[in-house]
């Protein structure tokens, strides 16, 4: 494997203190090569989103290390880190500021990082995610869920990051809309050489999007396998097999 773009070593996250302490992530570790798409699958409470929040710096209280290109990510995260690593959230209905025009939302990262040619970049970012330039002048409530998620992707892309963290980016969308957003994410990754870390509870989505997949349950990564293994149900751990079976057929007993 080439030098990893992102590496997680012995990552542990705990919430609460003393008796109410919950170990949300327990000694997790993985490496993601440049241009690779790495998936984390797990059920609710498995700690998969907590890992993303720790990587992004939204939650700074973690043990272990997050390495970007071999160097530990600064704590707290600085602007240079955010320029490199961006995130797309699960629910496009809550990840865009409801009272700000799309243009203002997209302008913000450019202002913070002092980019030039701002209007040009916004128009380009919108067209990259398949939206007409007029969308800049709308408010979030005037957009559909799929359009909002495209705007959220455009916002993440404006800083030209190399690593994208995707937190269930399509679970709030209809399947027909999901297809378009997943295609877009795949195209963007290939054309820009982006590295993805994607979290999902949906086996279909994760197998389609990622080449390697970590299976998480109760805060631990129990197994790491390839998408082909996942499709051919070639899993070592019982939990992984159970997850695959449950996702393939609706009725466990039938």
């Amino acid at each position: 494997m080439t030098a990893p773009s992102l590496e997680i070593v012995n990552l542990s996250v705990a919430f609460g203190s003393d008796r109410a302490r919950v170990q949300a992530v327990d000694n997790a570790g993985f490496r993601v090569a440049p241009g690779e798409s790495f998936g984390i699958i797990g059920e609710s409470g498995s700690g998969k989103s907590t890992i993303l929040r720790a990587i992004s710096g939204l939650n700074d209280e973690y043990d272990g290390s997050v390495l970007i290109d071999g160097r530990a990510a600064p704590r707290p995260r600085n602007k240079a880190f955010f320029k490199n690593v961006q995130m797309v959230f699960q629910d496009p209905y809550s990840s865009l500021h409801p009272r700000r025009m799309i243009r203002a939302t997209l302008m913000e990262p450019l202002e913070i990082h002092r980019f030039d040619r701002r209007d040009e970049r916004i128009a380009q970012a919108l067209s990259d995610v398949g939206l007409a330039p007029e969308f800049a002048y709308r408010y979030p409530h005037q957009l559909s869920g799929g359009q909002r998620q495209r705007v959220a992707v455009a916002r993440a892309l404006l800083l030209e990051p190399r690593i994208m963290l995707l937190d269930e980016p399509t679970s709030a969308l209809d399947v027909s809309v999901q297809a378009g957003v997943l295609n877009l994410l795949n195209t963007l990754r290939l054309s820009r050489g982006l590295t993805y870390v994607m979290v999902s509870h949906d086996l279909r989505v994760i197998a389609h999007m990622c080449s390697r997949i970590a299976v998480m349950t109760q805060g631990r990564i129990v197994e790491e396998l390839s998408a082909d293994d996942l499709r051919s149900q070639n899993a070592e751990q019982d939990y992984t097999r159970e997850l695959i079976t449950a996702s393939r057929v609706a009725l466990a007993a039938e």
Partner: peptide, 20 residues
């Protein structure tokens, strides 16, 4: 999430309070 998203753009606390 939208506050979190702005934090991940590198927005300062002042900016977040004033603009968001």
């Amino acid at each position: 999430d939208y506050i979190a998203a702005s934090r991940l753009q590198g927005a300062s606390s002042t900016r977040l309070i004033l603009r968001h």
